[in-house]
Design a protein around this nucleic acid. Structure first.
Lengths: 225, 225
DNA sequence: ACACCCGTTAAGAAATTGTTACGGTCCGCA
DNA sequence: TGCGGACCGTAACAATTTCTTAACGGGTGT
């Protein structure tokens, strides 16, 4: 198995070294950073599998660093475990909480930390395994969740609409005629009038806007490139 | 609090008695064994919370006994503290080190021994706790106790309902179709109508409210993200 | 103007889920 | 052993959502 890399961001040097030592003993690669700014830099450079982030730090604190990470396409899906000293920070962290993240309060028990890390990595691996998620233009089409996102908006499309969109988006730029779409989305031996596709396309456009699915007259539809 | 049981395995009878005396004074239950073989027997019978194991012993030495314990499903997660006379044994012990284990060198200081024991037990309790507890939204889903908490409220869900909730919550956000849910929660080769899932979902919603489990029509259910 | 294709809408059909009620089973307890 | 209750699975019907169709209208090229 490949060693996982963990980036630890904390301004207390002693704690940093302690964690470093313990993680290495467990077979992880460890990167260290002493403030948020440095943390971001390292993260961008090395793409760690997980980040251990202290909340309270000088220069750029943990929350800020995390917000920056979330906005960076390369880093936004990296799982993060927060280190918090006070429990009221917990609430704040929960607000940020996405995906497989977690938090742990100081003082830190090494075994607990390690079991948390392993748990998060395990969870994360699971979710990563089957990435049925498409990102096209400003849309995220998440087949695991059956949800389409654009910025903060979430769209719950009905099944056929969702699958049609997903199919077209996964072949971005390629034109598909109605019959092909029916075969692929509806199923092979199904008797449905091809006009049906139009109606679904229209409903998608109604919800997401006209600018994703283009009509190619006389041929079919295409997801805009 | 329930008394913890500690199994002490050492061939020096005097030392055994001394440790026994001190541990009992601290409020532990104590089991004694004079060699590895006897140690394993007692461990199997009583499932102690922790084992104090001498390395050098006649008949079956500590290392061997520990290896056997590690292979036994019932005992493999029992924490062990090793007693070593020489520091070069220390290295050997580290190789075996799993979970919350520790070692201590002879001659033994009683107070040190006790504080180590307490530390290991504490660590061990902590990690045990972590494993089966989920915190999602305002819910705490505790699989050890089969209890769901929300603030001060406690809900006692029946087994199937609990497990269904737990499964969905542990895959927060991901849609699961009924068949998958049946496989994961009910079991692989079980013949149950998928409508059954609906009924259980309904019962969960009845108790906890509608806002945790979402329906994705045509697909399945999803724990709200 | 005609033919063809697509967009749009509304309405009914079909599919899916929600809800309730009921019978069976298991277990604890008298 | 018999009783009561909790739990589970199922069926039936209601409610809701989704899907499909048909029909009309507009645009475009011939």
């Amino acid at each position: 198995m490949v060693k996982k890399t963990i980036l630890v961001v904390d301004d207390e040097k002693d704690l940093l070294d302690l964690i470093d030592y313990n993680l290495k003993k467990e077979g992880f690669n460890v990167l260290k950073a002493e403030n948020g700014e440095e943390g971001i830099e390292r993260a961008k450079e090395f793409h760690p599998d997980l980040v251990l982030m202290d909340i309270m730090m000088p220069k750029m604190d943990g929350m800020e660093a995390v917000e920056k990470m979330r906005k960076d396409d390369e880093l936004k899906s990296t799982p993060i475990i927060f280190l918090t000293a006070r429990s009221d920070e917990k609430t704040e962290v929960e607000g940020l909480n996405k995906g497989g993240d977690d938090y742990i309060t100081k003082p830190i028990s090494t075994t607990k930390l390690i079991s948390r890390i392993k748990a998060v990595l395990r969870r994360f691996d699971e979710t990563e395994e089957e990435v049925n998620r498409l990102e096209v233009h400003d849309l995220t089409i998440d087949k695991d969740r059956y949800i389409v996102q654009r910025g903060d908006e979430e769209f719950q499309l009905p099944r056929k609409e969702f699958e049609l969109l997903y199919y077209l988006a996964s072949r971005k730029g390629k034109v598909r005629d109605r019959q092909t779409l029916l075969n692929k989305v509806w199923g092979d031996n199904i008797y449905v009038v091809d006009r049906t596709v139009d109606v679904h396309v229209r409903k998608i456009r109604e919800k997401l806007g006209d600018h994703y699915i283009e009509t190619v007259k006389g041929v079919g539809y295409r997801f805009k490139e």
